[in-house]
Design a binder for these strands. Structure first.
Lengths: 346, 346
DNA sequence: TTGTAAGCGTTATCAC
DNA sequence: GTGATAACGCTTACAA
């Protein structure tokens, strides 16, 4: 009555049911069905819980059990359309196994990354999924994670001894490029992606390898335009390429870049695929709704998220390998590519 | 040495520094600078912290202080491109004020919503931001939130006595429709949005009001096509509309729907805006990169996220009003609208 | 079948 | 200036 404690705790339930806190705890325990208890007691406790609207405090439980059932998800920017499916993959798998997900947008900024990792360790998350890189730049060996038994799983390329989910960017881009080569293209440019990104570097490498496979000359600066990862970057990269003799095909570092190129091509009065063929990467939802529909490499982003959480659970069980898990990509042929106007001309 | 405790705790630091745990706590306290302490002591503690790689346990702190510095963010689906900017708005503001964000995708499913709210209460989050509705369908009065002093803030329309951030969907769609009316259009259809969504209903209402303003006949089923909120929904809605006498302008419930309509129009050999004008809603990033660029209503999504977190902080301070905070929208005129081919014909 | 009590890692209130 | 110690809300031996 006087000075009632703020919220409802297990003690209030115990008092209301006329039992000890241990008994209440037993009713709430996951092993409850196996715990011998008088039926009447159990019912009294359940009733008290209902009436008081009691919700057990997970903090206290976590403190005792040394696990929070919480994981951190660290990525550059959820606004990048590449990430939402990944996030859902992680979250769906996480919630299916009783984990909560703390979202951390870092913009790829090493300082923000470091700050978030610190926060997550202090929150004693059971594990952390890191997508989009940025970790290798961390100062010093991250033994903090060992100290607090925080498991790390990476999505994408990295140089650390942690489990990871990846795709073969080199092979996928090589195959995508080979596809336009097979269509008869020779003037093939590569568009977008900052050199600072290992993903972009891998895709560029795949493009170079495909050129070599096809006996095309080494790609020079005239056929490779680096830039951003987004529509704007693709737009400007494509524009700058259209100045000289325009290529007949564009291999883009990702779909956003490709969609930016679509806009640049339209503005230049060039038609896809009659004048220029375009290939993307990622297969974002828009890829099948632009016209012409975009031929692109489908990345199993959602599945990568799921796989990352599975790896995290394995790591928590002590049964995780640091051997990267490679998920398959697939070239989705749609309508943005066609043979060049005058195949073989020149 | 023997049976060393698993992780490093404040006690280990105290032992290493040869002080009491209270002293370590004082060094770590936010008020540390104001606490009188011998410089040498402080230094010894700091050194011990560094050497042991100690990170204070936020759970223990939270348990004691009755606040977790964590908030829940409940929304239908992060994969819906409308949400990422909102999420970033919330998260940026949250992290700026020391809050962690737990992400909860519900697919709008009442059961998932209820389950997540329960989880969040058990996690003793300080507050919850609910976007995308679905709450009113919860069974019974949510007095659990009162019991555990969990503050709720809504983004979008709702019928609950909680603070909220909203936009005026009716007025915005009315203005957008008035814009195409002003261009001379009379055959104006409304596309997409399930009737179950209050947002969709509001936008439809705005469309109807604009028709009335313009002296157009009440919209019948032939001019209103409900459906999904996404590209697919827009595509099919537009297709079904193109059967009879096609409208000269399409007012779409959102940009995804509009982009779906773009595809349907292209497939039907109709050109935008020569044959049909299109207006969207939301101003997602793609809107300025499709060709023709999409005329649409810009929604300050990121700012809404920020505002939601501000409201949550106000609520935690006890200084929040349940009066909805209305953020302004803006019609962004681009190139998807033009006067109808034969203005006034018929 | 149920209760008592120790302890998870902190902070805050007293003493000294 | 610094140190004991009692909470915070729970789970889990161990007793009864």
């Amino acid at each position: 009555m006087s000075r009632s404690r703020a919220t409802v705790s297990i003690r209030d339930v115990a008092a209301a049911a006329g039992v000890s806190v241990a008994t209440v705890s037993r009713v709430l325990s996951p092993a409850s069905p196996d715990i011998p208890m008088r039926q009447a007691t159990r019912e009294r406790v359940v009733r008290a819980i209902d009436e008081l609207g009691y919700r057990p405090n997970d903090l206290a439980r976590a403190l005792l059990q040394q696990r929070t059932s919480t994981i951190g998800l660290v990525l550059p920017d959820i606004s990048n359309p590449y990430y939402p499916p990944l996030v859902r993959g992680v979250e769906d798998a996480a919630s299916a196994h009783g984990y909560r997900v703390v979202l951390c947008n870092t913009d790829g900024d090493p300082e923000k990354i470091a700050a978030y990792l610190d926060i997550l360790v202090k929150a004693r998350v059971d594990g952390i999924v890191v997508a989009g890189g940025g970790l290798p730049q961390l100062p010093g060996p991250p033994l903090v994670f060992e100290t607090y038994r925080t498991k790390l799983v990476m999505v994408g390329r990295h140089r650390l001894a942690h489990p990871s989910v990846q795709i073969d960017n080199v092979a996928a881009t090589r195959a995508a490029t080979a596809y336009v080569v097979g269509l008869g293209h020779r003037g093939i440019a590569f568009l977008g992606g900052p050199a600072s990104s290992s993903t972009a570097r891998d895709r560029l490498l795949g493009y170079r390898e495909a050129r070599r496979d096809a006996g095309l000359p080494e790609a020079g600066p005239d056929t490779v335009r680096t830039g951003g990862f987004d529509e704007r970057g693709g737009y400007h990269a494509a524009r700058s390429l259209l100045g000289g003799e325009p290529p007949t095909a564009l291999v883009c570092v990702n779909d956003r870049t490709a969609l930016g190129a679509y806009a640049a091509l339209a503005d230049a009065g060039l038609s896809i695929p009659a004048d220029v063929s375009v290939v993307g990467f990622d297969d974002v939802p828009m890829a099948s709704f632009v016209r012409p529909t975009l031929t692109t490499v489908a990345v199993p982003t959602y599945e990568m998220g799921q796989a990352a959480l599975r790896l995290l659970r394995d790591a928590l069980d002590g049964t995780a390998s640091t051997e990267p898990v490679l998920l398959p990509t697939r070239l989705v042929v749609r309508t943005s590519c066609a043979p060049p106007r005058a195949a073989g001309a020149r």
